[in-house]
């Protein structure tokens, strides 16, 4: 029995990991793009991005999941009632048909990209202007300065807040069940419902702990690697 439960939970933890991995894969670069937007000298862009980040960070992720899950269907039926049919309606239709896991990934990516963008922004803005000026005076281009001078310093500064956020993501994945993504906690609840077993539910904690433990070690390692210099 124990082995059965373990294997079953492990299998469903893989869905959790899939959601986790895909979210990171897309939100890390998207966050960087958003952070550039929020630091843009073109003010309309800057303020649009800032308002967007405010909305995403200012509402619960659970609510955003629900909006992404039910929203497209509502939009489609609204437009269909009006007899409108265009590319946008088609897009909404596709979203409506999408696998709940895909919908969850989209909502998670947007949510986490906004959080990451603020961490990136903090890191980039913490670099002294003198570093850029030293690069300019040495004839480097802006791109060279960003990649060769600034980037590693930013990475070093953002590793601690990023690791925090990423470990939060591991646990936030469980929210996806609100939009019918079957994952580890749901699987455990089925044991309660179908077999009257409570312990598998507690047992899920072990999987989360193990995974976040691995991540903690990994980030500790990265931090140590980056400690070859101070400042």
């Amino acid at each position: 029995m124990f082995l059965d439960v373990t294997l079953n939970l492990l299998q469903n933890f893989l869905i959790t990991l899939k959601l986790f991995g895909l979210t990171l894969l897309f939100s890390l670069p998207l966050g960087l793009i958003i952070s550039f937007g929020s630091m843009s000298k073109f003010l309309p862009l800057k303020y649009i991005v800032k308002v967007f980040v405010w909305i995403i960070r200012g509402t619960p992720l659970m609510l955003q999941l629900i909006v992404f899950y039910f929203g497209p269907g509502l939009v489609v039926s609204m437009f269909e009632a009006e007899g409108v049919n265009n590319g946008f309606v088609d897009l909404m239709r596709t979203l409506n048909m999408a696998d709940p896991l895909v919908t969850a990934v989209i909502a998670f990516v947007i949510n986490y990209a906004c959080y990451f963008s603020e961490i990136y922004r903090g890191g980039i803005e913490s670099i002294q202007i003198g570093q850029y000026e030293a690069g300019y005076v040495l004839g480097m281009t802006k791109t060279q300065i960003f990649f060769k001078v600034v980037l590693l310093q930013v990475v070093k500064r953002i590793v601690p807040p990023m690791s925090n956020e990423i470990i939060t993501l591991v646990k936030d994945t469980s929210l996806a069940r609100t939009i019918t993504v079957y994952e580890i906690i749901w699987a455990a609840q089925d044991y309660v419902r179908n077999d009257g077993l409570l312990w598998p539910l507690f047992y899920t904690g072990v999987f989360y702990l193990a995974f976040s433990g691995i991540l903690t070690l990994l980030f500790g390692f990265v931090e140590k690697k980056l400690n070859f210099y101070r400042g």
Binding site: G130, E133, A134, M140, T141, L152
Partner: peptide, 24 residues
């Protein structure tokens, strides 16, 4: 142009009060 500014800059070197070395 940025390109030209960079070329012109190379006539000069600048040593800052705060050194501004690249720490990494």
């Amino acid at each position: 142009s940025d390109e030209e500014i960079r070329k012109n800059r190379l006539h000069f070197g600048l040593v800052f009060q705060q050194f501004n070395l690249f720490p990494q």
